[in-house]
């Protein structure tokens, strides 16, 4: 177990180094931060001074080692654009993204799995066909288009929910959260639903195919032959077995939501981390982009580890593997 964790850490370390190399040199090719930061009034001399101030006058490999050296001591550098520590910037915005991502995932699992089990069991019923039709549509229409429809219906015509911003926030553990107030929750609703639509559709399909596979296993028939009621068979014998593939996908999806809900955050002006990433790439704010992507890499590694543990928890065959 300890050996396994050490191996995992070693792998994630390599991954983080590769990631930093790709991003660091990749951004260098994209453009010069000095040009992005300077306005028309800047003279050549000003630009050189700015470059020296940001450390951009040194050779690239030296810049890389200075930056990564700092990172090893917990210093993720200072943003070129905001002139503030990168870590502060990220930590300011991460909670906003976390709360809508997790809410979206809860909605996705809570609605998608029951729908999937239902349509798996009643495969040939009309209701199942209707559900599958809608999830196919939800799965295949673009996310931004769904967002615009949501805004039109709920914010413009019905005027039930706000379409942009994060609303009121309250402090908990020294971090500002929106979900602690009704106003904040209202603001969260549309972006979270927007993210959730896709998840509902996917979970429905996963749960449906899982259900149909498990339903015809002999232990399901044997459970019926034991005289156990249908509801109990679904709760105990079916659910746990279909959760095994669902956990894997959900793990990856949570990571994806946190890291890349950029489009939704942009449309709803949600001050999350996705928007920060987009702005930073635009401005070639290298420290922010590199630090962000390394953090995301580590997060994925961590999520995968959690998935492995849950997997073993759900499936005893993995726990006792020979």
């Amino acid at each position: 177990m300890i050996k396994y964790i050490l191996k995992r850490l070693w792998h994630s370390g390599i991954l983080a180094i590769v990631m930093s190399l790709i991003v660091f040199f990749g951004l260098y090719v994209v453009g010069d931060p000095v040009e992005m930061l300077s306005d028309d009034e800047f003279t050549e001399q000003d630009k050189i001074e700015l470059a020296i101030e940001l450390g951009l006058d040194k050779p690239l490999y030296e810049q890389y080692f200075t930056y990564t050296g700092g990172m090893l001591q917990g210093d993720f550098g200072t943003s070129f654009v905001y002139n503030r520590p990168v870590l502060d910037l990220i930590m300011e915005r991460l909670p906003a993204t976390l709360e809508i991502s997790l809410l979206a995932m809860v909605i996705g699992l809570g609605i998608g799995i029951p729908l999937g089990i239902f349509s798996g069991i009643k495969n040939n019923s009309r209701a199942s066909k209707i559900i599958s039709f809608f999830t196919t549509v939800g799965y295949s229409t673009p996310n931004f288009w769904q967002a615009i429809i949501l805004i039109m219906v709920f914010a413009v015509f019905l005027q039930w929910l706000p379409a942009s911003g994060r609303g009121l926030t309250n402090s908990m553990f020294g971090i500002e959260w929106a979900w602690l107030s009704l106003n904040g929750l209202q603001h969260m609703a549309l972006p979270a639903i927007n993210l959730a639509i896709y998840k509902i559709c996917m979970q429905q399909r996963l749960a449906k195919s899982g259900t149909q596979e498990i339903l015809y296993q002999e232990y399901m028939t044997f459970a019926r032959a034991k005289g156990i009621t249908r509801n109990r068979i679904i709760r105990r014998h079916l659910l746990r077995n279909i959760l095994i593939p669902i956990v894997t996908i959900t793990g990856l999806e949570v990571g994806g939501l946190i890291a890349f809900s950029t489009v939704t955050e942009t449309i709803f002006s949600w001050p999350g981390i996705g928007k920060l990433l987009l702005d930073s790439i635009h401005m070639i704010d290298r420290p922010v982009v590199v630090a962000y992507l390394i953090l995301i890499t580590l997060m994925f590694v961590f999520i995968n580890f959690v998935v492995d543990v849950m997997y073993a928890f759900l499936d005893p065959r993995i726990r006792h593997q020979k």
């Binding site: 002999e218 232990y219 032959a225 034991k226 005289g227 156990i228 105990r236 014998h237 499936d315 065959r317």
Partner: peptide, 23 residues
């Protein structure tokens, strides 16, 4: 449901697949 198990028992060919692997 009230008959199965109660009045008539059933034994399957392959015990490894008749028992649920996760329980």
């Amino acid at each position: 449901e009230s008959l199965r198990g109660n009045q008539i028992g059933y034994i399957y060919q392959n015990p490894m697949t008749a028992l649920n692997p996760v329980l």
